[in-house]
Simulated assay, not measured.
Amino acid sequence: MRIGIAGITGRVGQLLIEEVRAAGATVAGGTTRAPEQATGLAAEVPLFTSMSALAEKCDVVIDFTHADTVVSSARALVGTGVAWVLGTTGLSAAQLGALQEASGDMTVVHAANFSPGVTLVQRLARMMGQALPAETYDAEIVEMHHRQKVDAPSGTALAIGQAVALGRGVALEDVRESGRDGLTGPRQTGAIGFAALRGGQIVGEHDVLFTSADEQITLSHRSFNRRIYATGAVRAALWTKGREAGLYNMEDVLGLPPL
C-alpha cells in the first residue's frame, strides 16, 4: 500500500514515516511548504508542495495538518480514488461540511485522536453520559499538555465532551463551561465542564469525571509518546483498503459495534 503523508516534515510526520515502514507499507511521499528545508527521514522520500501532486502517487493520505487546509485538500482528493485519514481538529461548520461532502465520493477516516485508548475512553464517556443523569452527575473534563500547545481545550478533550453530550442527547455548545474565573456563580445543572492545564513536555493527559453527591467515576488516559497517534493513523490507513466511500472514525477501524 502506498501511503502519503501531508505535513511530512512535522514531528508526527517523522514518526509516521517510521510507522508506515514498520507496517510493511510504502511511503509514497509527503507535502511540505519548503522541500529544500526537509531533514531526517523526510529528506529521503519524494516531496510535493500540493495535495493534488501527492495524490497522484499514493493510495491513501494521512493528514495531521491544519483546519485551514481541509477544504482545499478535500477538493484536491475528490475524484482521485485516494482515501483520506484526517487527524485535524477544530473544524468549522463549513470545513465539516466539506469533509462530509467529500466522503460521498471517497473513503474518509476522521478522528480527533487515533489512539485506541482514547477511542475507548470516548466510547465509555458516551455510555456514561447516557446512563448517568445530568441532573445528578456533573461531568468535568480535565486535560494537560506541553507548554507549547496553543489551543485549549484540546481537540481530544472536546471530542470527549462531544461524546458525553451525545450520550445525554444535547448539543455540546449549549452546555459547555470552560475557563471559570472569579465570581462565576454556582455550577449549572447539566453543564459539561472543561479545565486545561499546561506545563513541561507532557504529551497528553485526559481525565473525565462524573461526580454526584454520593460517588465519583473517573476515566483517565495518559499518552507517553506521540508515536501512539502515528501507529493508530497507519492502522486506519491500512484499514481503508477496499472500503466503500463514506465517513468513518476510529471506532470503525477498531471494529467496535455501533452503540
Rank of each mutant, 00 (worst) to 15 (best):
Q122G: 13
S115D: 12
L132G: 06
A157Q: 03
E135R: 02
E135L: 02
T107P: 08
G117V: 15
D105K: 04
K149L: 11
E143Y: 10
I141L: 13
Q130I: 04
G117I: 14
M106C: 14
L124N: 07
L132H: 06
P153D: 04
R123G: 09
Q122F: 04
Q122E: 15
I141W: 02
L158N: 01
L132S: 07
A163T: 14
A125N: 08
E135A: 07
V118M: 14
M127H: 14
V118T: 06
V121A: 04
D105V: 04
A112M: 12
A102N: 02
N113S: 14
S154R: 01
A159K: 03
T136V: 10
M144P: 00
E140H: 12
D105I: 00
H145I: 11
E140Q: 14
E101H: 00
E101C: 00
N113A: 13
R123T: 11
A111Q: 03
H110Y: 09
A111S: 12
P116Y: 11
D105F: 13
M106G: 10
L124W: 08
A159S: 14
G161Y: 03
Q122A: 15
L124A: 13
A134V: 01
L120I: 13
Y137E: 07
D105T: 00
H146Y: 01
T107S: 13
T136I: 10
G161K: 03
D138W: 08
R123Q: 11
P153V: 04
E140P: 03
V164M: 02
H145E: 10
M144R: 09
A102F: 05
I141E: 02
V108L: 12
S154C: 11
H110Q: 05
F114T: 04
Q148K: 08
G117C: 06
S154N: 07
S115P: 09
Y137H: 15
R147N: 09
I160N: 00
L120Y: 03
A102V: 00
M127N: 12
G117T: 10
V150I: 13
S154W: 00
T156R: 02
E101M: 03
A163Q: 05
V121Q: 03
R123A: 15
T136W: 01
K149T: 10
V109E: 01
K149A: 12
H145S: 10
K149I: 09
V164E: 02
I141N: 02
H146M: 09
V121L: 13
M144F: 04
Y137V: 08
P116C: 12
G129D: 09
V109Q: 00
P133N: 07
S115R: 06
P116Q: 11
Q148V: 10
Q130V: 08
A159N: 08
G129N: 11
M127I: 12
I160L: 10
D151W: 13
N113C: 15
R147F: 11
H110T: 00
P153R: 03
F114E: 06
Q162M: 08
S103E: 06
Q148G: 10
Y137F: 15
N113F: 08
P133M: 06
M128C: 12
G161R: 03
S115F: 10
G161S: 06
M106K: 09
